[in-house]
Structures are given as C-alpha cells and as structure tokens.
Write a protein that binds this DNA or RNA. Structure first.
Lengths: 341, 341
DNA sequence: GTTAGCACTCACTAACAACGAGTGCTAAAA
DNA sequence: TTTTAGCACTCGTTGTTAGTGAGTGCTAAC
C-alpha cells in the first residue's frame, strides 16, 4: 500500500506532467505550495514509486513521467472530478437550442463542440441501428432490370440498396412480396430480419410468388449486415497539436484507424457499461492507440438503445476535465433523446 | 521563345526533381546520357531560365528547383504521356470484375485503387445528384408528430429527411399531398424542385389540403439544398509520405480541407471541361493547396450527368503518370456507367 | 558559342565545450 | 529512524568551430 506522501507525490507528478508535457523533477515538486518536504525526500519517494512501476524515466538523469500503471492508479484513485463552468454548460446547451435540428445533425454538432472544448478528438457512436424496428418496407422499380429496396425504421432511419431484378420478376409479383414483407416484418427489429427471412417468410414467399425466396433473403442480408452504428468525429486533426504526435507515423496510424469503422467500434466494447470508462494506452490492444487514451460514456437513446460518446487524446490528457465533460454531456444527450420519442 | 536547348534543360530538371525531390545541379544534368554539353553551359542556361522565371533556387549556392511557372510550362509543352502498363490496367479493371457491385461501392473502390497506384491522395466527386430525376416521392409517418419524407431518384439514389408534422395534419391530408407531389414531380430533376414548389404545386396543395404549402416547400428546400455530389477519398494519409509534408501545419490544413465538401468542390470547377485538367499550387486559390497540385478528369455517368476523378499530390508529383492513369480510368468509368443504364 | 578553371557560397556534419536540470548516494541533522 | 543538505555524476541541449561537398557565377581560353 502506498503512503499518503507517496499518493501526494504521484498525484502532483501526474497533474504536473499532464499540464506541462515535460518530465517533472524533484525540485519542481518541492517548490509547490502544498508540498512541505525537501527535494531530497521527494527524490527518495520517486525512486520508490519507480520501483513500484508507477513512474518512468526517459533517461538516467531526467525527471519522472507517469507510466501506464501510474496513469491507471491516478484515474482509479486520485481523480477528483472538476466542476464544470457555466460557460462550458452554455456552449454545450447551445446545440439543443434549435429545436428543429435533426437527431443526426445534433450528434454531429455535439462531436464538434466536444472537440472544441477539449482540443482533443471526439467520437460519437450513433445508437445501434440493429435494434431499430421496421416501420415500412418498399421496393421502387427504376427500370426493367433494376430496383431499389427501402426500409424505414421507427427512428426515421432509412436504409436502401439498389439491386438487379431477376429476369421474370413482374410488377405484380413485386407487390406481392412487398405486401408479405410488410405484413410480417413491420415492428420487428432489423437484427431479426435475416433470421425471419430464412424461416416462415421464405415459405410464404415460395407459396405465393414462386421460388424467389433465395433472392429476397440475400437482399435482406445485405441490407442488415452492412448497417453498423454510424461513427461521427469532431476535431479529427486536433491531435496534431499534441507534441507527442509530431511523429508522422503515429499520426498516420491514428488517422487511418479512424476510417475503419469496425476497429473503432472495438474501442467502445466496455462502453456498454454504465458511467464513464477510461482505457489507457496499450489497454486498447491496438497498435495505433498505444500512445492514446480513450474515455467513453454511453448515452440512452430511448427504446433500450444506446450510443457512445468518446474522447481520444494523448495518454497525458486532462482526465479530470474530460471525464466531467463526458459525464455531463452524455446525461444531457440521454435526456434529450429519450424525451424526443 | 525558348531555345531547344533551354527546353531540354528545363525538361531534364523538372523530371529529375520530380523523381528525386532534391534541387538539381548543373553537373548532375551534364552527366546524363542524352545531354551533350558541359556543366558550365548548363549553368548559363539555368541562369537564363531562372531570369525567365521558370526555375528557382532554395539558396544562393544550391541546385535549381522548378517554379510554378516552370511546372506550368512543363505540363503545357513538355509533357509526353506515359504508356500504361498491363499490370496497371489489370488492377484497375479488377474493380469491374464483380458485376453485382453497386455503383457507390465501385466508385469507392476506384478511389482506393487510384491512390494505391499513385501513392497520392485520390478524390472522386460522384455524379451531381441535382440532375437526377424524381422517381417516387413518399412520406412515412413515424409517430403522431414525426414523419420521414423520402425521394427516390431514377439512379436509385434515396434522399430522406425526418420532419415534425404540423399539429392538424391528418393521414388523409398527407396522402393527398403525396399524390399531388408524385403527379407533378416524377420525372423532374431534383434541382427544379424548389422552383416548381413555389409555383404551380403550392397552388394545388393550397386548393386541396389547405394552407400547408409553406411547410411542404420548406421541407423540399431542405432536401434538395443539402444534397451535394458526394465526395470519396482514397489514400487520405498518403501525403504524409511526401517529404514536403513533414510540416504538421500543412498536413493539418489539407486534412481539414478534405472534410469541407463545398471547398473541395471548388477545386473541381474547371473539371467540367473535357479531358484532363491540371491545377498547380497557387492556381488553386486555396491556402491549404498552396504546395499541392490537383489533376482532374471528368467521367460520364449517363443522362448528361458527369462526375470527376482527381489526384491531389505535391507540386512535384509525377504528372506524366497521373495524367495517363486518370485519362484511362475516367474513360473506363464512363464506359461502365453509361452502359449500365 | 562553348568550356575549363577558379573563387566563393552555404547547407550539413562532426567534434567539443559549457550549461543545467536532474539523479543517487552519503553523511549529518532532527 | 526519518529527513535533509551536499556533492559527484549523467545526459540532453545549446553554441561554437572547422571541415566537407555540392553547387554557383564569372573570367579567360579554346
């Protein structure tokens, strides 16, 4: 167990390093008002903290830098949430001023505000479309060979795919299929569609319009498979301000990562849990994120659906501030999205 | 007018600089097989070319670098198109192998291939949706207060917006509006919708369902205004490989630019014209593009619609190669998209 | 008109010293 | 026993200097 003094020293070092980005030395700490021991004492404590794995040195005679374990301890035990300022509240709430704004646009705007407020990169994972329920299904023929299939969900989300019609598909048959599908699928969540298509509905379609069930079901698989939760970014290039990202290769990996939706989604795994989650450096199990931390919070979008909101920043990001902001904002978003329904 | 020898010297310098990225000196040129004069002669020619504004020096005793004017002259008069290799043709054509691929996915894939082939960043501007014609219009109610409006175009593109219903809008009235709109709008290009909405249709709706025309027309404005041609990128981070982009600020400006669709579209202004267009550095009139060149070509997507395909690279990009590839690829795309209709 | 020769420029590199922020350790003070 | 002052040592950073080499412009000879 750490002594009180060790806790204090660790806290001061992490805080100091977060705000300065420079390794912090014993003299610097000793000069602080709330520290009453000499630099030599602190040097001893620092050596102990280093032995315990909480601190690191960049070279033999430099100041200390928190290790990942150090950050982890800091966020788990030493993090005192910051108070949010009125000004910050104002700029967050300004998003919701325009009542007519669509949900999607509002989420986009939230991402921007969040990245402006933090100077880091923000990510918002829209509510998982899989749980949305089918409101209407429709096929619109474009020509004698092509048509577009459309699914409208209860959330107002519209999915569509262009497909090539089988040669002998007549208008009447299309209508019949559409009717069957609407009868059977309206009210069901998107995720269940492929399942249902393979069972009862395949039979029904076979009975009424012939053996085209294969074709229809493959169409549906394509529709529901592709649609993952949408990802929105704010301040994608903010990380270029951080001195730790002057390395072009790191920047490149990170930027490339952001265009790969599935990989980004794995970063949110633990985001399902309640409250704010913090993942530090290698805890993300992703090479590109080795020097980054991600802080996530989930919000409620009604109907048992939830999205996630996150900040990606350097490991030495301002955890206090970001945690507070995310907590506040996810609460606001939840309230807004559940009331709207 | 430039002498033959000056032309040759300029050509060699530009070619050399493009491939090496280093300022090129008189001795280097003299050593080339196809150059038969001494370095001193070349020095004199270079001094003249510099006076004429085609070359620049980075400092008093360094080799020469092409100026923007030099590049311009090079692409206008000295550019001999390269032959395209079978291997390149093969990788381009591999995109079209999968007949079932949707147009959008194919365009996305084209952008990727193009950036891989060139190691620069590729941009594809999808066909302008404004010219697509309305195929079907529809309103799907979601709840007592909200509904989603859907427009399907003849190309299979689907536009949709969620909107809040006026309080006294009944299902019957909605159907009536939908009918009127379908009667009057099917077959008309999207771009004409706002115009028509203000004229005849406003009257019709007023006659049949009361004074809701304002509401409907504002809805339509929102639909057709927002939808610009879609922009697809390939190799967004490729530019980080170029030594001229080790400057974080340039990278940042460029990456930020890429997320601003309207600004990117201005880069394609001249792309309407036939054939391949080259814009060098400040010719783009855009700070972020000061050190970049963009080469564009347009392709035909049938029905008098066209898209653009472009490569963004450093000013010293391999113009020969890129011009050839773009020319070839735009032709291929045109053939493919016009046949498909 | 062309070219050899030469003095000059200037970025780049290596070597070196001086500096300073930091450490670990020891011994004295509390 | 704990804390602290003192000191030797480490190592990154900065500045200086000199040497190198790729390049130029100019002049005079070919």
């Amino acid at each position: 167990m750490l002594t009180n003094r060790q806790l204090q020293v660790l806290q001061v070092i992490v805080d100091d390093f977060i705000s300065s980005g420079q390794p912090v030395g014993s003299r610097q700490i000793a000069k602080k008002d709330n520290v009453s021991f000499s630099s030599a004492t602190i040097r001893n404590e620092m050596a102990d903290l280093e032995d315990l794995g909480f601190l690191e040195k960049t070279h033999t005679s430099s100041g200390r830098v928190p290790s990942e374990k150090g950050y982890r301890f800091y966020v788990d035990h030493l993090l005192k949430p910051q108070v949010i300022t009125n000004q910050e509240i104002a700029s967050i709430r300004s998003i919701y001023a325009d009542q007519l704004m669509e949900t999607e646009q509002m989420i986009r705007e939230s991402a921007n505000i969040l990245s402006d407020l933090t100077t880091y990169t923000s990510v918002i994972l829209g509510p998982d479309v899989h749980m949305h329920k089918v409101k209407r299904f429709q096929i619109v023929p474009l020509s004698s060979t092509q048509a577009v299939a459309i699914i409208v969900t209860d959330s107002g989300h519209v999915e569509n795919r262009v497909f090539t019609l089988p040669e002998d598909f007549s208008m009447r048959r299309i209508e019949k299929v559409v009717n069957i599908l609407n009868e059977r699928l309206v009210g069901k969540p998107l995720v269940e569609i492929p399942l249902r298509m393979d069972g009862e509905i395949a039979k029904l379609i076979k009975e009424h319009v012939g053996a085209y069930s294969d074709f229809v079901s493959s169409l549906f698989n394509r529709i529901s498979a592709q649609e993952e939760g949408r990802v929105y970014y704010g301040g994608k290039t903010n990380m270029l301000n951080q001195p730790e990202f002057h390395d072009i290769n790191k920047v490149r990996m990170l930027l490339d990562l952001m265009d790969k939706t599935p990989q980004v989604q794995t970063l949110f795994q633990a985001g399902n849990q309640q409250g704010v989650q913090i993942r530090i450096g290698s805890e993300n199990n992703l090479l590109a994120m080795e020097d980054c931390s991600i802080i996530t919070a989930s919000f409620d979008a009604g109907d048992n659906q939830h999205g996630s909101i996150a900040i990606i920043g350097p490991k030495r990001m301002d955890y206090k501030r970001v945690v507070t902001l995310l907590d506040f904002m996810s609460g606001d978003l939840s309230r807004l999205l559940t009331n709207n329904r």
